[in-house]
């Protein structure tokens, strides 16, 4: 099923981050809070657009994910690349830390 999560870039270093279940910003997509309803999504997004949140992140937005198999996976190629790192340099980005969803499966 396609649901949404909230993502942004961290202010200090621009790194890709996701809004976690614990209500924090995490580098791990798998820890994201899954937003199943439009109301939930709108509320969590609004929280990320406050002046306080702007001290932590830039450009928050909702992205669709697939969590059918119990694992949260991006739907769009762009989000796979954000979650992993450049596809031509597996030594860079989160994929280098073995901390990203697999492109297969």
């Amino acid at each position: 099923m396609t649901v949404q999560i909230l993502t942004a870039n961290r202010l200090g270093d621009g790194a890709v981050v996701y809004r976690s279940q614990a209500g924090e910003w995490t580098a791990r997509l798998g820890e994201s809070r899954v937003l199943a309803t439009a109301e939930d999504a709108a509320r969590i997004l609004a929280e990320a657009e406050t002046p306080a949140a702007a001290l932590e992140v830039v450009g928050p937005y909702l992205m669709p994910v697939d969590n059918a198999a119990g694992e949260i996976r991006p739907v769009e190629m762009r989000e796979f690349i954000r979650a992993k790192g450049p596809s031509n340099r597996t030594d860079l980005g989160y994929q280098a830390e073995n901390n990203s969803p697999s492109l297969v499966g």
Binding site: N9, D13, G14, A15, V16, P51, A54, L55, V58, G59, R78, I81, R82, G85, P86, L92, G93
Partner: peptide
């Protein structure tokens, strides 16, 4: 927090600093 991102963005762009997919 003295400048919002909307205020800051044109200033950083004037200095060649973009925000891309993974980083600045």
């Amino acid at each position: 927090g003295e400048l919002t991102e909307d205020q800051f963005k044109p200033l950083r762009l004037m200095n060649g600093l973009y925000l891309q997919l993974h980083a600045y």
